[in-house]
């Protein structure tokens, strides 16, 4: 299971499988906390024209996300916001979970959301968050497949506290066990 944070995905080149060309690069990921997955990415241009691109890349058009590139079949995968699904073309700003407080159902704060952790390959499922603990140090928590978010806080099951990990490798092992215990798999 290959896990990457959203900040590792930002800046990756978008490369066509059929053309071997770098047609864009990832500016940011667009995430749906309700769906628990990446719905698309926003783009920057490459090369001489470097800078913000209007085009977006819906998750459905992503062939694969790897450590070194986001792969698409060809340039037609990049679409204008008007041609993209609503949640990709015009993502709601309250969807941004960064800096949100993470509260357990029992009312304990685990810290704030620092980054998203995605299961890459061809799925783009968001399986955890990198968190900034109340003491300031970093950690990782696994997530259930779906989540309640308000824009300022989000609520996770009580037992999430037992699954706080120090690194991405630890999180890889924790996700499956966490979801098994929640009865999700």
């Amino acid at each position: 299971m290959l896990l990457m944070t959203a900040s590792q995905i930002r800046g990756l080149p978008v490369v066509t499988v059929q053309g071997g060309e770098d047609v864009a690069e990832v500016r940011d990921v667009i995430y749906s906390p309700e769906a628990g997955r990446l719905v698309g990415v926003t783009l920057n241009k490459r090369g001489f024209l470097a800078g913000r691109s209007r085009d977006v890349l819906p998750a459905e058009a992503i062939h694969a996300i790897g450590q070194d590139a986001v792969m698409v079949l060809d340039e037609s995968s990049l679409v204008t916001p008007e041609d993209a699904p609503e949640d990709v073309g015009h993502p709601a700003t309250e969807r941004n979970v960064l800096e949100d407080d993470i509260l357990t159902e029992g009312g304990a704060s685990l810290g704030k959301v620092a980054d998203l952790v995605l299961l890459v390959g061809s799925s783009g499922e968001v399986v955890g968050y990198q968190i900034e603990k109340p003491g300031g140090e970093r950690g990782y928590i696994p997530l259930p497949a779906q989540l309640s978010v308000s824009g300022v806080a989000l609520v996770v099951p009580n037992m999430t506290e037992e699954f706080v990990q120090d690194d991405l490798v630890g999180l890889g092992g924790a996700v499956d066990e966490f979801r098994t215990r929640l009865g999700l798999t």
């Binding site: 071997g20 694969a64 996300i65 790897g66 450590q67 590139a69």
Partner: peptide, 8 residues
Amino acid sequence: ALSEQGNE
């Protein structure tokens, strides 16, 4: 050389 999975 890049795999279609996006790994160098």
